[in-house]
């Protein structure tokens, strides 16, 4: 057995455990911490897949920025004297839907004829940069992405600021 297999098993268990923690924990703060744990585990899986740059991006964006935003929102929206937790809620319909979806996808993945050999060279950061400038439309798409950042900023300011209309 390779060390990488062991690493995969540990990281996969950690990711699934984090997912279960998000779904089962009653405290919203705990759920955010579980989600942080899950995304760090997935970042580890990216390293196994030799996508170090994306692993870093996941840790910074999801583990750092997103968790921080969620925690700040919890702190801002929590009312005084009210516990930051929620009643445990479940839905049989959602469970059936999720299990059926997982079963369908697992069956299809098991039946698929997938290439098992890794590519000779793992995609590097340089490739990403070259791909970005390969075609005008891709540059336009990354421009569109930055416009969306602008959009989220506008929306955040608009919804949080007082303003008295016209």
């Amino acid at each position: 057995m390779y060390a990488s297999d062991l690493a995969f098993a540990v990281l996969a268990l950690a990711a699934l455990g984090g997912a279960a923690g998000v779904l089962l924990s009653r405290s919203t703060v705990h759920a955010v911490l579980w989600s942080l744990e899950s995304s760090v585990a997935v970042a580890g899986l990216y390293v196994l897949l030799s996508a170090e740059f994306l692993a870093l991006a996941v840790v910074i964006l999801w583990g750092g920025a997103a968790s921080l935003a969620l925690l700040v929102t919890i702190a801002v929206t929590a009312r005084h004297g009210e516990p930051v937790s929620r009643p445990r809620e479940g839905s049989l319909r959602a469970a059936v839907l999720a299990v059926a979806f997982a079963a369908l996808m697992l069956a299809r993945i098991a039946g698929a004829d997938l290439a098992t050999a890794e590519t000779a060279v793992a995609p590097r950061m340089r490739d990403l940069g070259e791909a970005l400038f390969a075609e005008p439309a891709l540059m336009a798409a990354s421009g569109a992405l930055s416009l969306m950042l602008l959009l989220v900023m506008i929306a955040g300011v608009w919804w949080s600021r007082g303003g008295d209309g016209r």
Binding site: M1, V42, A94, A98, M105, L114, T116
Partner: peptide, 22 residues
């Protein structure tokens, strides 16, 4: 690495279904 793409895809499918449930 002996773990093939199937294992990764299966893990992703289970995570996706868990998120779908939530």
């Amino acid at each position: 690495m002996s773990v093939g793409p199937g294992a990764f895809l299966a893990l992703a499918a289970v995570l996706f279904a868990a998120g779908l449930y939530g």
